[in-house]
Amino acid sequence: MKPIQLQLKQISYSYNGEKQVLKNVNLDISQGEKIAILGANGAGKSTLFTCMNGVITPDSGEIVIEGKKITKKNKIELTKKVAFVFQQPDNQIIAPTVLSEISFGAMNLKLPQEQVLKRVYEAMEYMNLKTFENRTTHTLSGGEKKRVTIADSIVMQPHIYLFDEPTTALDPLHQQMLEEVLEKLSQQGKTILLSTHDVDFAYRFAQRVIVFYKGEIIADDTAETVFCNNKVLSMSNLKQPILLQIQHILMQKGLLKQCNIFAKNIQQFQKLI
């Protein structure tokens, strides 16, 4: 069992003291975990991420990162260790060129210029953006902008990555590329949390699935267990992943043996049948 990297204890948050968006959220996240956060619109997923990254301070509760309790004074420690990739790249990109945009986070870490440059080039290489160095950000396509925003986070070399609905508005090619990048980051020992409505992607990628309903966690288990819980799925307007549905149909028709192994991708499914 890997040590706990990030702990949320009894986190509550409300906008302008009115509607409570997060209600007593408790969450333990271990290093290297691949977690998908699911839930209907307005369930509190994005607010949870902004809390985890230190952009907003919860009304009550405690955040502990790598054993260190986060207070208002050391909030920056959280921002340094937890990177947040926003849903809409246009809400994140602020600099005029790709180079300056990617350098923004590293420059804010007050690193020496040579080190910033080294990190920027590494991030560009990682996201296949080498040829985009001097491109103006407003001339990039949606997929390219997404790559830039991921490079924005990579350059800060965080321990935890938060992706807010990363597949939104991406074409299949960019979606595949994104999944590959997430896998690569995960293999490097980084912890990845993503919020999504794409159940197939969540099922394929995540080991652990957390479901939010009106600011509360209603399920926190392995992807297979959560996606077999019809009550949770209907409460949060979710559907079962297509592979799981097919597997269940085949089992009901007797075309596939009853088993507790669930295929997460086509290759695994082929092996199973």
Partner: peptide, 17 residues
């Protein structure tokens, strides 16, 4: 928010071309 998420402390710092 996006700037704060990347340790923005009141000064826009970029590398130049």
């Amino acid at each position: 928010q996006a700037m704060e998420a990347r340790c923005y402390t009141g000064e826009l710092l970029f590398l130049q071309e």
